[in-house]
Amino acid sequence: MRGFWVPAAVLMAVASLFAAAPQAPAPTQGELARLTLQNDLLQKQMTLAKAKEFYLLLDTQSQTLTLMFHAALLQQYHVDGLEVGVPRVVFRTRSDASGWEGRIWEKGALDPARALDRVEMQAPPPTKEGTEIEVQVPQTPEEKYPVPARYHIRFDGGLSLEVRPPGTDAKHGFWSKLAAGVSTWWADAKAASGRTSEDAVRLHVVMSKKDAESLYRALPPDTKLLVLPPRS
């Protein structure tokens, strides 16, 4: 009989200890919201990492723009500043600057496009000895793809990244600068007052000249984008 009561007493003592243990405090709404947001962003990063397209991660907290593929870091650019631009017509804002964070934007394309000028070569008629080929020295990437003073990476659905490489504007003289200014204003006014949702939100990414030029020359076609919002 004694053999039964001793283990039973020990069990009861252990059970009472557990019952008396204070329950963990309930999480705050802020903590739950943080975890939910983190979960959503991680799931989106998984979706991007499993896809066959290149993607950009714009991390507003660490101020980096990273070109990735299959979760591998390919290139990272430091973002010196970020501004959000919304279209307005006669001082009246046409869209609100929200909804661009934490969403996967697809089919990013450069504007102006970095067009590949393909050379076609007609082979000489075949002979046993062959024909001497003159080796032509092609242009360097810098010569081949001059970076404009302002370019956009436009995504389907109305988001565009705007990059203005510092010091790229080669326009000298009053009239040239005026013409460039008017042309920029006209392009902006047209985009802002257009019926389509193109450029509903513009993110002006401030980068060093080197990074801005490198991004323009390196961006693969149909790149996706995910903007990671500040986590705090």
């Binding site: 959000v84 631009g85 279209p87 307005r88 804002t93 964070e101 204003w185 513009r202 919002p229």
Partner: peptide
């Protein structure tokens, strides 16, 4: 007053609270 109006990016997430 026509074109794009730029402002600093928000320092906290502007995503709606779940």
């Amino acid at each position: 007053g026509t074109g794009y109006e730029y402002g600093p990016a928000p320092r906290v997430s502007s995503l709606p609270a779940p």
